[in-house]
């Protein structure tokens, strides 16, 4: 589990490589468009869970 900051809105977990990290709205959009930055696999909205406050 990665550390989150007040600007992080989601926790991303790649279904292919299992890597996870916190993202904000802009990063979420980039991951959805470009794929998981770690392994390069395509992603979907299901890979994002809202960060608990």
């Amino acid at each position: 589990m990665s550390a989150t900051s007040p600007t992080d809105d989601y926790e991303f977990t790649c279904p292919q490589c299992g890597e996870g990290f916190a993202v904000n709205d802009g990063m979420r959009a980039a991951v959805l468009e470009r794929g998981c930055p770690i392994c390069g696999s395509p992603t979907s909205t299901e890979a994002f869970a809202p960060c608990s406050a």
Binding site: S2, F21, A22, M27, A30, R34
Partner: peptide, 10 residues
């Protein structure tokens, strides 16, 4: 991974 930014993801 915690150092990723929009630019790096792109």
């Amino acid at each position: 991974p915690d150092e990723l930014t929009v630019e790096r993801i792109v």
